[in-house]
Write a protein that binds this DNA or RNA. Structure first.
Lengths: 367, 367
DNA sequence: CTTATTTGCACAATCGATGGTGCAAAGACT
DNA sequence: AGTCTTTGCACCATCGATTGTGCAAATAAG
């Protein structure tokens, strides 16, 4: 069989080869053949043909006809971040396990780009859209709604459709309290020793700030407004804020609540330009988990959002048809300093270790 | 305007509304109308109609007809890793700037899954495929070749089609030398003080190991075989290897060449279970860059691969038609300890810093 | 041996856009 | 006025699959 034609086989090719009609071939190959009362032997024959000719369905054709594509979209703010890339990893595994194809796209936290990106995905007839961390979830909602596309918010809530988010208030409280308690009783934190940096005017930041202020007021008796510095979600803006603070006070606050690992990178940039010793007394709480950050030379307390549960819940909720918009809270977890948690990658088996000659790899001699 | 029909407008709808034929509408909206000698005024009229009815082309239909989709694929080993997610971020920006839609998928370093994933992408008629870090690039190549799909390898080379990869030998040399020179002359590293952990039998690992051994032999005069521990690409296998070493020697080697940040996470897991003081003398070189890892409490020297250049080169090479397979080397960069580099995210503007109060969101709070 | 069922499949319309071709009307030219 | 061009657009096949419908042949029922 000279089957290595440059072009892909279609049901019409198989139809000719098998002597059956295209519709029969189609039914056999998409699994609806029993409903269509195709003989087992016919089906078997066609299946074999398909295999030897390496047939794979043209999904665009299928999608055009059925107005479904098998694509499931995830709209992220950015890829380059452990939180979001873990989300992508978890999302992808989930989608693939349902036999669909994940399509992960980022929109840079730009409302306009979010909407345009959603439009683009819709033009490919994606089946569902998970909107993660969108700056304007309701804007994206309008677009989805107009196209009759099932969608759900993750990480940042919208008002028009259900959302699955972290309990940011509780997380903010947890983290703030952990920072405060990390200081010894004989050198306790003063109210103006504890600052919050990063975040913007989004739901997550507001809730975290609310938690921060509540706990700070409870435990430290006061919370000056200037201790809240929502410097956005860019590392360099955070860095500038740290520089500015340092310029004014000659030091950093003893306790830092850093909103998101991206802003933590801003802190690193600041630190790269200043002598190490300045930070001997520093305790950082970061609302995000990153394994490397957890082992930095000062205590870093982190919040790990429960990604698995958020994704699981989101897939559960998106199936419900037209539920009243509801916000589902998922509890995040406090991670003490120097903690290396496992992540979605640990679910993958690592294979092909030796691959021939180097058979004495260390993996085989675990004690 | 009561245009909020539940279903999307098509060229046929616009055709009726405008009194023109579908083909005219199509030509106007896809830009080929000048070639078809459509009157400016007709075009203008149709464009307005399209706008008020929020027309967007059905890409599956277009793709079916033209056998192109506007989708450009990136096949990754995993998402959850700064190196690959930076690649994804850079790739995405590039693809979007060409008006196409990026589709980033991971295949877990599993050859079988790599091929099946490529098949799936092909069934969506993607226009190009960038194969990054594939365990079996040539296997994926076969699949692409059979479908007449343009493709290229990144990060790990194949033999059948061009590749853009880091100069891993040079990188390995750079990193090894930096580790060795980081030790003071009065307490120099002994040959059996410097180990390499991680990686497997792939091109990148082999080259890095080759560089490691070459420099080690040059500078330290010898390189015992047991100093090479290719423990794969899973954090827990790396951890086990560190534990095993520690069990036997009661300490870690003074110098560690860690292949990939994933294996570095294995080192963290090991460290989490051991007293901090054991690692006072440690110098780590990691073949990958992560900003947080760079600030750990021991010297961490890192290699940053030049992602922007690799992506740029890959896009350049993939356009060439049928070049003889060639491997393009891109020089990586040595990153000294405590260095916070900028990344693809810094190209994004951070917006909406104050932005009034966004509508009070969060429909109903639930526990 | 008829009539009713069931089995097994073929036919043809359809999804929405593209692009080759044809043809009438308007304008140019002699 | 008659012929030749150019302009402006409509018609229709096509991409590859899905799906409602129809209809022979095979089998069962009477």
């Amino acid at each position: 069989m000279a089957n290595s034609s440059r072009k892909k086989a279609t049901i019409y090719d198989l139809s000719v080869l098998s002597g059956s009609s295209p519709s029969t071939v189609s039914a056999v190959l998409n699994g609806t053949w029993r409903k269509r009362r195709i003989k087992e032997s016919t089906a078997e024959f066609i299946r074999n043909l398909a295999e030897t000719h390496q047939y794979t369905a043209n999904r665009q054709a299928r999608g055009l006809r059925s107005s479904r594509s098998g694509l499931v979209g995830l709209l992220l703010p950015v890829h380059d971040n452990r939180y979001f890339s873990s989300l992508a990893q978890t999302f992808e595994a989930r989608v693939r396990s349902k036999g669909q194809c994940p399509i992960v796209v980022s929109a840079s936290r730009d409302p306009e780009e979010e909407r345009k990106t959603a439009e683009t995905l819709i033009s490919y007839s994606i089946d569902e859209l998970f909107i993660c961390g969108a700056t304007d979830p309701d804007g994206v909602h309008e677009v989805c709604e107009a196209a009759g596309l099932k969608h759900i918010n993750i990480d940042l809530p919208g008002t028009k459709v259900s959302s699955v988010i972290s309990d940011n208030y509780e997380g903010g409280r947890l983290l703030t309290e952990a920072i405060i308690r990390h200081f010894p009783a004989d050198r306790p934190l003063q109210p103006d020793d504890l600052y919050l940096f990063g975040g913007r005017n989004d739901h997550a930041s507001r809730e975290r700030i609310r938690g921060f202020r509540a706990v700070k007021t409870e435990l430290l008796r006061s919370d000056p407004d200037e201790c809240i510095q929502p410097t956005g979600y860019a590392a360099d803006n955070a860095q500038k804020a740290f520089e500015a603070f340092y310029m004014r006070h000659g030091k950093l606050p003893r306790g830092l609540f850093v909103n998101s690992s991206i802003n933590f990178e801003g802190l690193l940039r600041f630190m790269a330009g200043h002598p190490h010793e300045n930070f001997a007394d520093l305790v950082v709480g970061c609302y995000d988990y990153d394994p490397f950050a957890s082992f930095l030379p000062f205590p870093v307390i982190m919040i790990r959002q429960n990604i698995e549960e958020m994704i699981a819940k989101a897939f559960e909720v998106i199936e419900e048809l037209r539920p009243p918009p509801k916000v589902h809270l998922v509890q995040p977890e406090l991670v003490p300093p120097r903690t290396a948690l496992t992540g979605p990658l640990d679910a993958l088996k690592d294979i092909d270790l030796s691959g021939g000659q180097d058979s004495d790899s260390a993996a085989s001699r675990s004690a």
